[in-house]
């Protein structure tokens, strides 16, 4: 145990031994995937047509939004060049699936069906359609282990979207929420404030949604305010997730 905790080269060995249990993990995941597969396969033509129409409509909507984004992005770029700074990174994404296996009840972790063979690396940010989910903590050949934001060991640098106040959000697995650390009583953070990643620390990219403040408790006797944040990613429900890669962009 001490070896595992203290000696980094051992992690390499560990991920190699973990290959042994990979087939078991896939096997356990199989029946659940099978049931899902049946549900998707046994849908009627009518349903499919309906869903297709819906998806097309939403795609149109998103594309319209995206065009607006392009304009904003180029405008942003021009302003940045005027200011003399440049946005350094673009992000490449790739989809992955969660394996339906549980892990240690003490931690909030999930297993992905992609590993070092697909270029996954330790510290890589993971998100779903609604926001940041967590980061990769262990990579094996064909699977990897993701620590969710609500794990007790997880912290993420965030900022309030409304006024750019920066903070650190730490996981609280007891209630499946995040808590902001070291927020002074006088600081302007309110209920329903939206938090995005601040990009500080260099691990998570800038500007992705993290969560929403659901309660702020200010006690004049306590040194700091107690701010509870509900993560916007569907940590419990999402099965399809996105892996993010930093890419030196030309932009």
């Amino acid at each position: 145990m001490v070896v595992d905790l203290q000696i980094p080269p051992f992690h390499e060995m560990r991920s190699q031994i973990s290959v042994l249990v990979t087939p078991i993990q896939y096997l356990v995941s199989l029946p659940i995937d099978f049931v899902n597969w049946i549900f998707t396969d046994v849908s009627t033509r009518q349903q499919l047509l309906q869903e297709n129409a819906q998806l097309k409509a939403s795609l149109l909507l998103f594309q319209a939004e995206l065009q607006k984004q392009y304009a904003i992005e180029s405008e942003n770029q021009q302003l940045r060049t005027l200011l003399g700074t440049s946005q350094k990174f673009k992000h490449k994404v790739s989809a992955a699936q969660l394996l339906a296996v549980v892990s240690n009840p003490f931690s909030r972790e999930v297993v992905l069906n992609k590993g070092s063979m697909d270029g996954v690396f330790v510290g890589q940010p993971i998100m779903d359609a609604w926001g940041i989910m967590g980061q990769v903590v262990q990579v094996n050949a064909a699977t990897s282990r993701v620590m969710l934001l609500t794990d007790a060991r997880s912290s993420i640098p965030v900022q309030v979207k409304r006024n750019n106040i920066r903070a650190i959000a730490t996981g609280d697995p007891r209630f499946d929420v995040l808590r902001l650390e070291h927020i002074l009583n006088t600081e302007d953070i309110q209920k329903d404030d939206f938090l995005v990643t601040s990009g500080l620390g260099g691990r998570y990219p800038y500007g992705y949604p993290v969560g929403e403040v659901i309660s702020v408790k200010r006690d004049s006797n306590a040194q700091f305010a107690e701010v509870v944040v509900k993560p916007s990613a569907h940590l419990r429900r999402s099965r399809l997730v996105l892996l993010l890669w930093k890419q030196e962009g030309k932009s």
Partner: peptide, 13 residues
Amino acid sequence: IILDLVEGSVLGE
């Protein structure tokens, strides 16, 4: 050890 690998806990726990 297999349980440790599967659950992602510290090896040997």
